[in-house]
């Protein structure tokens, strides 16, 4: 084992960590917001159909193809090149982020939908009879209960998105995987380099797992035999 090489490799891979984290956090934020909107749309019949079609398409096609479609495909349309969005859409960064957000929204909206369906009807009725507005019920009762229900499934999605950010390396971006790929083509020491990269992803996943377990205990202490908040 060439520890000097491994050490150097870690150091240079970590230079890609900020970009990886950037894609990861922003796609979760954007995807989560869009997922909430998709679920609110589901309260109307047309909105439900649109949201259903959206989820069908983005969950049913590979993320890699979605990234390529946005990065290579959109430029083929004249109106896209004319639009005010072109300064963004010609940048690989924004194309990658957009693809990740759209993809994450599809999965997260289904996770949230499951959580919302699990909210007991009686809890909502109790809100209504206390005179709460629809918005207050959503904010104070429905979403908090749905979120607690969805948390275990959502922590999977969070880890899944961390790994999905690796795909942006295919459109020239130098995230951790991008740096790893470049290093491999220079040195041909694929196994060591990929192990280093995998170890960093693994370490972050471990943190997520620990955090979500802690968060779950904190949000729903009664499930864990704690009698007071």
């Amino acid at each position: 084992m060439d520890f000097t090489f491994l050490g150097d490799m870690f150091a240079s891979l970590l230079k890609g960590l900020p970009l990886t984290l950037n894609f990861w956090v922003l796609s979760l934020l954007g995807g989560g917001t869009l997922a909430l909107i998709l679920n609110l749309m589901r309260t109307t019949r047309i909105g439900n159909a649109v949201a259903g079609a959206y989820v069908f398409v983005f969950r049913g096609t590979p993320l890699l193809i979605q990234i390529f479609m946005i990065y290579y495909g959109l430029a083929g349309f004249g109106f896209v090149r004319q639009s005010f969005l072109w300064p963004f859409l010609r940048e690989p960064y924004w194309c990658g982020l957009l693809a990740l957000i759209l993809n994450d929204a599809a999965y997260t909206s289904e996770i949230l939908r499951g959580g919302l369906r699990a909210v007991p009807k009686g809890a909502v009725e109790a809100g209504r009879v206390s005179g709460m507005t629809r918005f207050a019920i959503l904010r104070r009762i429905t979403l908090p209960l749905a979120f607690r229900q969805a948390l275990p499934a959502y922590s999977n999605e969070v880890i899944s998105m961390l790994k999905a950010t690796a795909l942006v390396s295919t459109i020239t971006l130098m995230d951790m995987t991008g740096i790893a790929r470049a290093a491999i083509s220079e040195t041909w020491r694929a196994v060591e380099i990929l192990l280093c990269a995998a170890a960093i992803y693994l370490a972050i996943s471990l943190l997520v797992t620990r955090f979500s377990a802690w968060f779950e205990r904190r949000l729903s202490p009664w499930h864990f035999g704690r009698t007071t908040p």
């Binding site: 007991p120 009725e125 109790a126």
Partner: peptide, 11 residues
């Protein structure tokens, strides 16, 4: 209003 199933907010 008091419900048959109490309907307290569990969270």
């Amino acid at each position: 209003f008091v419900f048959q199933n109490f309907n307290l907010w569990t969270h």
